[in-house]
Design a protein around this nucleic acid. Structure first.
Length: 263
DNA sequence: ATGGCCAATATGATTGGA
């Protein structure tokens, strides 16, 4: 079974690329971020025609997350718990009955947080603490769980081409990385780093300043796995070539294969 | 990490992104 995450930077602008990529990569479950449209405007029929069930949590203009699944949803929950005043559409989780058993998958669009020393950064850190609380509660269920999305966190210096350029950025500040480590230390596995210690594995290249041409990238899109999911981890891939397509998102898809659980 | 971009908005200037 293949599970992927992709920040599409507007689903309306990316629908053709998304359908082409689905056909090529054949994921069973996809977590989308930055759909940037209200639920009624989401191109649901296009994905249903491609064989997917669709669950969306969007808002006007900004943010927006979605789940695509070849398997029907048993349960869908929108919004990250812990703050009733948070109206950003940044979180949706689904439970799917797959042929290998139930699986819980969350699509996550963690706040950017720039500029630091503003309420935007405070919101980011608060959101990360709430995400850790969510993860702690879900991990206690001892289910296969995938928390996938745009975390807006560069975990280590190996995850940026020019780490020194990011030292004062909300994506790489010590407090950001501390919160991310705290989340990981609950018992989650970073799928990419579980399978490779290579540098140069990036998922985002800025539209500006020729970042793509210079391979000035960062790794900020992550699939975090609960122990029961990590036990089944097979191949992992970053579809870097999608960044060279016409009218690309600034992020590329990342995917994992989960094998059947060992008896 | 800003010289250079991109997307959404009743739109031609501003906001947000990373």
């Amino acid at each position: 079974m293949r599970i992927a995450t992709w920040n599409v930077n507007s689903i309306k602008q990316r629908i053709d690329s998304a359908l082409a990529w689905l056909k090529e990569r054949q994921p069973d479950i996809v977590c989308l971020q930055e759909t940037k449209c209200v639920d009624d405007a989401f191109p649901r029929l296009e994905f249903e025609s491609a064989g997917y069930n669709v669950a969306v949590h969007g808002q006007k203009t900004f943010n927006g997350v979605a789940l695509l699944s070849k398997f029907p949803f048993d349960e869908v929950n929108s919004g990250l718990p812990g703050d009733d005043r948070d109206d950003h559409a940044r979180f949706i989780e689904g439970v799917m009955s797959t042929k290998d058993g139930a699986l819980r998958v969350a699509s996550i669009y963690l706040p950017n947080g720039n500029p630091p020393a503003t309420e935007k950064y405070t919101y980011k850190i608060g959101w990360m603490k709430r995400l850790s609380a969510y993860a702690r509660a879900r991990l206690a269920l001892e289910e296969p769980l995938i928390m996938a999305g745009d975390y807006n966190v560069i975990p280590t210096t190996a995850d940026a081409r020019n780490p020194q350029a990011w030292v004062n950025d909300a994506l790489f500040l010590p407090q950001t990385r501390d919160e991310f480590r705290a989340l990981m230390n609950l018992g989650l596995t970073d799928a990419v780093r579980a399978t490779s210690d290579e540098p140069g594995l990036y998922t985002f290249w800025d539209y500006q300043a020729g970042a793509w041409q210079k391979n000035n990238g960062i790794r900020i899109d992550h699939l975090l796995l609960s122990p029961l999911a990590a036990d089944r981890l097979g191949d992992v891939g970053i579809d870097k070539h999608v960044r060279s397509w016409e009218k690309p998102s600034d992020h590329v898809p990342v995917w994992i294969d989960l094998d059947v659980a060992a008896k």
